[in-house]
Amino acid sequence: MEEKRMQGILKAKPEIGAEYRTDLPIPAVGERDILVRVKAAAICGTDQHIYKWTQYAQDRLTLPMVFGHEFAGDVVLTGEKVTEVKAGDRVAGETHIPCNHCYMCETDNRHICENMKIIGVHAPGAFADYISFPVDCAYKISDEIDYQTASMLEPMGVGVHGVDKGDVRGKDVVIYGCGPIGLMAVGAARVFGAETITAIDVFDNKLEAAGKMGADDLLNSKTEDAAAKVIERTGHGADVVIDYTGNAFAIKSGFDMLRKGGRFVMVGLPNGETALDLSESVIYKEATVIGVTGREMYKTWEQCEKVLKDPGFHMEAAVGGVFALSDYEKAFQKIFEGVPGKMILIP
C-alpha cells in the first residue's frame, strides 16, 4: 500500500463531540486479522452514546479511538493465518468479536460469547478509510448488494433476529419502535409472512416510514392508547410483540396488548431496571418471553440476504441520509433532530 495515513472520525477527548482527522495511521494487521477499505459506514445508537460521551461510553472506551461499527468494504490485506477471505473480496462487518474458546462459542453461539468484545467500542472502528479486524467478523457479501446496503446488514440483522425469534408467520404482530432497526424489522416481518403488522412509535414521521416498509396499522403511543387499540382490533390481543425500544412504558404497553399464550421478544435495551407485574403480564398469560441480542453468526446474515432479495422489502425507506465522512457532524445532527432512518457515511 502506498498510503501511509488515512482520514477518520476520532473520539479524542472525554467530552461531547468527535474530531475529523486526515493524519491517522493505517491500522496494523494481525495474523488472524484483515484490513478492509471502508466503502460505507452507518451510524448506530452506540455511536450516539460515544459522540455524547454518556455513561455507557465512559465505562467502555479507551481514548483516543476511531469509532463506528456498521460497515462494508473491500479486503486489501490479510494476516498470515487468514484463509477464509482474500484481497478483493467484498465484506460486511459483524460487530461482535468472539473469543472462540468459551462454552458459548464452542456450542455455535458466538453471538453471545462469554468474553465478547465489540468493534468500535473495545477495538478501533470503521469511521475511517481503513479498518483492521478479526476475520471471524467478516461476512462475504454477494455482488448484487451495494456497499451502502451492506453497511446496514449489521443493524438489519438485529431486526431480523428479533423477527425470526418471534415466529411471526401467519401471526398478528406488533413492532414497537420505528427507529432504523424497527423499520427493517417491519419489512422483515412482512417477508417472513406475518398476517398483520402494527407499527408503534411516538413520532409520526417514523410511523410514515414504517408504512412504506409494509406496516398495516400505524399507532402513535404518545397520542393514543396503543394497547387498547390493538385489543379492540383483535378482540384478544396481539400474537407477537417485538420491542425495539427498551422503553419502560413501551414494554409495559407491549405486555398489556399481548394475548394470552402470546410471544414477547425483547430486543431494545432498557436504560435501567424496568418494573413489570410478572403475575399479570407473564405468568397468568402463559406468555413466552425471549431476549435477543445481535445477530446469530452467520444464520441471521444469510436470512438478511434472502430478505433483501424479496421485491416487497424496501431498504430505501430505512435510509435517512448519505454524507461524506467529513460531514459527520451533519449526519449526527439529523439523527438528533429525529429524522427517521439510517445515516450513512462515505469515506
Score class of each variant (00 low, 15 high):
residue 172 D to L: 10
residue 290 I to V: 13
residue 264 F to L: 02
residue 280 E to Y: 13
residue 181 I to K: 01
residue 205 N to G: 00
residue 41 A to P: 12
residue 205 N to H: 02
residue 207 L to V: 11
residue 212 K to E: 13
residue 298 Y to P: 07
residue 44 C to P: 04
residue 194 A to S: 09
residue 22 T to C: 01
residue 33 D to K: 02
residue 224 E to K: 00
residue 63 L to T: 06
residue 190 R to E: 02
residue 308 L to Y: 09
residue 251 I to E: 07
residue 291 G to V: 10
residue 163 V to G: 00
residue 92 A to K: 08
residue 24 L to E: 06
residue 228 A to F: 01
residue 167 D to E: 13
residue 180 P to N: 12
residue 243 D to A: 03
residue 252 K to L: 04
residue 183 L to D: 05
residue 224 E to W: 00
residue 213 M to S: 09
residue 291 G to L: 05
residue 118 I to N: 14
residue 285 K to T: 14
residue 119 I to D: 04
residue 217 D to G: 00
residue 43 I to K: 11
residue 276 L to T: 05
residue 103 Y to Q: 15
residue 37 R to Q: 14
residue 11 K to R: 07
residue 54 T to I: 04
residue 228 A to G: 05
residue 136 D to Q: 15
residue 170 G to P: 01
residue 198 T to E: 06
residue 47 D to L: 13
residue 331 A to P: 01
residue 62 T to F: 14
residue 230 V to P: 15
residue 265 V to W: 07
residue 304 C to K: 06
residue 326 S to T: 07
residue 223 T to M: 00
residue 91 V to Q: 11
residue 245 T to S: 01
residue 292 V to E: 03
residue 109 N to P: 09
residue 214 G to S: 07
residue 177 G to A: 08
residue 54 T to Y: 03
residue 100 N to D: 14
residue 205 N to V: 03
residue 147 Y to M: 15
residue 96 H to I: 15
residue 175 I to M: 02
residue 39 K to E: 11
residue 334 K to Q: 15
residue 110 R to H: 10
residue 108 D to C: 12
residue 268 G to H: 05
residue 205 N to L: 03
residue 8 G to S: 07
residue 218 L to E: 06
residue 102 C to R: 12
residue 242 I to P: 01
residue 344 I to G: 13
residue 196 T to V: 15
residue 241 V to K: 01
residue 295 R to M: 11
residue 228 A to I: 01
residue 324 A to Q: 15
residue 162 G to R: 08
residue 237 G to Y: 00
residue 32 R to D: 13
residue 330 K to S: 12
residue 164 D to M: 06
residue 232 E to G: 09
residue 217 D to M: 09
residue 72 A to N: 04
residue 47 D to W: 03
residue 312 G to N: 12
residue 132 S to G: 08
residue 332 F to G: 05
residue 312 G to L: 09
residue 167 D to N: 09
residue 235 G to A: 14
residue 320 G to V: 13
residue 218 L to D: 08
residue 249 F to G: 04
residue 260 K to G: 13
residue 37 R to V: 02
residue 3 E to I: 04
residue 212 K to A: 12
residue 129 D to W: 06
residue 74 D to E: 15
residue 29 V to K: 05
residue 230 V to Y: 04
residue 16 I to D: 06
residue 291 G to T: 14
residue 35 L to W: 05
residue 315 M to T: 14
residue 3 E to P: 00
